[in-house]
């Protein structure tokens, strides 16, 4: 199994707080990994390290065999320029808890901003693809709306389309449904299930255990900056062997 994204011995501190402790991780192409765990366990920070939104204090992350943030020459690592980091970031799409759509741009402009402005692809192609993506997330009729005119669930679906428009190798979801009203969660999870079914590589930080059970190939449990347990949804969610996981699952259910 060829790993698409790996993390090796990842360490991360916020001041003196050791948020990520010796994280080793890998995900294969087409795999869906869900990360669960209590608040403050480092789940989101780990995701943000993959996308270089957080710096790494020790260890490294690779995407498609390339070390992120550095150029490797023999056993020497040279830090990349902002431009090269930006290029690396294009290989993973990110969906944020609070959507972060660009409020001054319409839905369509949000989606074509990356492919057209950053990847410099022709406008007509970008618009056509954006419309196809909007259809895929069920929002074809909202192309000209501003984000402020959409519900939370609709905004998050646009955010997913915006990330997909960059044709990333993998998608990162940082608690994509945590900021949504309960009745809107389903529509976003529905889109994510469709993505998973179509073979998208996904890392999903979530509290939606039902989604994990249904969609995940593997579930990771994180607590206090460590990966405590890892296995199939059945192993982690149905009959957890680790007492901390057991506590968490029973508290959540």
């Amino acid at each position: 199994m060829d790993a698409l994204i790996t993390a090796v011995g990842l360490q991360k501190y916020f001041g003196s707080f050791h948020v990520l402790q010796d994280i080793d991780f890998e995900i294969a192409k087409g795999e869906v990994v869900c990360i669960i765990g209590p608040s403050g366990s480092g789940k989101s920070t780990f995701l943000r390290c993959i996308n270089q939104l957080e710096s790494i204090d020790a260890g490294y992350v690779t995407i498609g065999g390339e070390i992120v943030g550095y150029r490797r020459d023999g056993n020497k690592l040279y830090p990349l320029s902002q431009r090269e980091i930006a290029r690396q970031r294009q290989s993973v799409g990110m969906v944020f808890q609070r959507f972060h759509l660009f409020p001054h741009k319409t839905v369509l402009q949000n989606i074509i901003e990356g492919p057209m402005g950053v990847q410099k692809r022709p406008r007509a192609d970008c618009v056509e693809e954006a419309k196809a993506l909007l259809k895929r997330v069920g929002l074809a009729h909202k192309a000209d709306a501003y984000p402020g005119e959409l519900s939370g669930g609709q905004q998050q679906r646009v955010a997913i389309a915006r990330a997909l428009a960059m044709k990333p190798k993998a998608m990162l979801f940082d608690e994509p449904t945590s900021a949504l009203d309960p009745e809107l969660v389903g529509e976003v999870l529905g889109v994510m299930k469709e993505l998973a079914a179509s073979g998208t590589t996904m890392i999903v930080v979530t509290h939606e255990l039902g989604f994990c059970r249904e969609v995940a190939d593997r579930v990771l449990f994180m607590d206090a900056g460590r990966i405590v347990d890892c296995g199939t949804p059945a192993e982690i969610l149905e009959n957890p062997r680790n007492p901390r996981v057991k506590n968490f699952i029973s508290a959540v259910l």
């Binding site: 996308n51 990110m94 944020f96 660009f102 990356g114 990847q119 990330a163 428009a165």
Partner: peptide
Amino acid sequence: EAGLSIGM
């Protein structure tokens, strides 16, 4: 961050 995440 959203801008950076789409490669800006």
